[in-house]
Nucleic acid binder design. Structure first.
Lengths: 210, 210
DNA sequence: ACCTGAACACCGTTCAAGT
DNA sequence: ACCTGAACACCGTTCAAGT
């Protein structure tokens, strides 16, 4: 009798339920609408129950962000695997996925990169999740260097430059700073591809590249 | 007697005082530490006084952000004027100033670009202030095209690409995502110049640029 | 171990009232 | 016009208490 119906201590995995509830609230109502009490309400527990699983609100946000980083890296990573033979296509495809993630999940992108979380003092697992995105870029760059396509410079240098370009574009679009240029998802893709191409070739005329 | 000492209705310019108090709180304690009540406290008025000058908290934040955008554009603009003859130097100098602004004012950068403000529904003056930064990039690009240095592509395309690269780098550094690579201001400058150079020349080998 | 309810010091916002 | 004080419905967090 006590084993069917509702389980005694909730779902048995309140931690996951709280992270899920938090993600849902962020997506629907934005970060401003996310309170610890509301998360507890959605999960169906008292407003102090989350403290069993998270130190404080920042800790819950970090856990939500970790899932977000994993999703971002996962989606971009799949694009890389689709073009296993062509580093150039890997770069473009992964970049488009990165940008589309920001467009489709603007509030999550806001949480991941908007300064809400202090990365310098973040939990180890969260730092690792954010590094994974960077490592993906490094992988692509190394593929391209091995294939003799990219210039012979420090991998870190090329990775930082390309990541900055793609990341910046994603943030500007999802933040609404380029709403004139990229309103639809098709326009976003076109703009993304263009930026990718220019990152690859540069903006200087060949003559002026000494 | 009533004309000296404290003036009857505060400084006579409470609006400016509130913006100033808000900026100070953000710089010292971060956005999380900024409440409308605390701003009023710092300005020395009751907690409802701000509502005479701002519709709500978001409206005050927008006003603070406007000042921030103006400062950012101003600092980058000065760098442009210092190199009035060389678009390439203009680009690098303005970019470094943009990046340093983010490093020196991380909380303000967080407010300007972190998604706290919805740019799509922001007050007209705020949109204009953010556009001014973009227009600065366009100016530099046009200078370079007129000088025959940059490739013959749509100004908007080149401006979006370069702005994305610089903006992305600034955000990644000030957000602490590159703390390994750019800890000191000198390292930030070195990294910034490197990214600028690669944005100009691209990362593909000359042979592969078809 | 896991959860609850009362309590505390805060918020943003509204509204009637004062000069 | 410009500002105040009380009031309302919320927060995050703590703590003693319950199973």
């Amino acid at each position: 009798m006590s084993t069917n119906g509702q389980r005694p201590y909730h779902h048995g995995d309140l931690r996951r339920a709280l992270i899920q509830a938090g993600s849902k609230i962020i997506e629907e109502r934005g970060l401003a609408g996310l309170s610890l009490r509301e998360v507890a309400r959605v999960a169906g527990v008292s407003h102090t129950a989350p403290y069993r699983h998270f130190q404080d609100k920042a800790d819950l946000l970090a856990a939500i962000a970790q899932v977000g980083f994993e999703q971002l890296t996962d989606e971009a990573g799949k694009a890389v695997q689709l073009h296993n033979h062509d580093p150039r296509k890997q770069f473009v495809a992964a970049s488009i996925q990165y940008i589309l993630f920001g467009v489709r999940n603007p509030r999550m992108a806001h949480l991941l990169f908007g300064g809400i979380i202090n990365m310098r003092t973040a939990p180890r697992v969260l730092k690792q999740a954010s590094w994974a995105a960077f490592q993906l870029v490094e992988t692509i760059i190394n593929n391209g260097k091995r294939a003799g396509i990219f210039i012979d410079r420090d991998t870190m240098a090329l990775a930082v430059t390309t990541w900055s370009g793609i990341h910046g574009l994603a943030q500007l679009i999802s933040g609404g700073y380029l709403s004139r240029l990229a309103a639809t998802e098709r326009q976003v893709e076109t703009l993304g591809k263009m930026v990718c191409e220019l990152l690859l070739t540069g903006i200087l005329k060949p003559d002026d590249k000494k």
